[in-house]
Amino acid sequence: MRHPKQFEHLRKGVNQHPEGNFSLRGFTEREAIFVHITKSAGTSVALSLFGELPYHYTAWHYRVIFGRKAFNRFFKFTFVRNPWDRLYSAYQYLKNGGWDDKDRVWAERHWGDITSFEQFVTEWLTPERLSSHLHLRPQSYFLKDARGRVMVDYLGYFEHLPEDFARIAKHVNPEARLAHTNASKRGDYRDVYNRKMIHKVGKLYSEDVDSFGYGFDTVQRRKVVDQKLVGDSE
């Protein structure tokens, strides 16, 4: 509250980019907040609903930016993704240059000697390194507060993208149609894991696995009830 002009700029400012402008102004216009988790179809969802891209802020960041009253009033949603699939997507994305030179330089510095996804998982990936790049952070980091409470109203699933997008669009922008952008060209994640890798990634991302109902190649949906995640049938 001591810096109202800075927060107003965050809410209304526009940063131009060839692949799509970055701005949060659509959130205010439509009274909706999209928590854009990395590598979870967020670019397609954001451009389709708002015509612009948000940043990878956490839900807690948005409560600060928009203020508690507006945050509580707005419809808040996100998309989550199978942690094993998401990690493979993030690895391929960063290895191939990422979004910009900053990503490329980071990958070259940290993964220059990494020659395969298996080597990345078994030799490089550790609990401490999950926070070394935004694309490696657990999805729970984006959605939960310090007490573990879920700060969004609706949890969309990457695996059910078309139908979940349609439900969200009814709240946010009924005329929106899902456009697929920023899709990566790669094989099925299930083909690149062995048992040791499956176990290690499941342990490293155990909070996401348990919170969102994922198995290596299965999903049992969760929904948000009173800031907690419960089975979709409950």
Rank of each mutant, 00 (worst) to 15 (best):
Q227K: 11
L87C: 07
V225C: 07
W111T: 02
T58L: 09
H135L: 03
L87N: 03
P162W: 12
R222W: 12
N82C: 12
L143F: 08
E175Y: 02
L24C: 09
S211L: 15
L229R: 02
Q139H: 10
V224H: 06
E31A: 14
A179L: 13
R147W: 12
Y55D: 10
Y91L: 07
Y154G: 01
I37Y: 08
R149P: 01
S211W: 11
Y93P: 01
A169M: 10
F212C: 04
Y154D: 08
L134T: 05
G148M: 09
Y205M: 05
P127C: 08
H17T: 03
R147L: 12
W111S: 03
T126R: 11
D153E: 05
A166K: 09
D100V: 01
F66C: 01
E159M: 09
R186F: 08
P174V: 08
R2F: 12
I33K: 03
H180L: 09
N21C: 06
A41Q: 01
A46V: 08
Y57A: 03
A107W: 06
S132E: 14
E29N: 11
I168D: 07
H110W: 13
T78F: 13
V230L: 13
V80N: 09
S116D: 08
R137V: 07
L49T: 02
P54C: 07
H9V: 10
G213M: 12
K102E: 03
D85A: 14
H9P: 00
P54S: 07
E29T: 06
R129D: 10
A59G: 07
H3Q: 11
R109W: 07
A169N: 04
R30L: 02
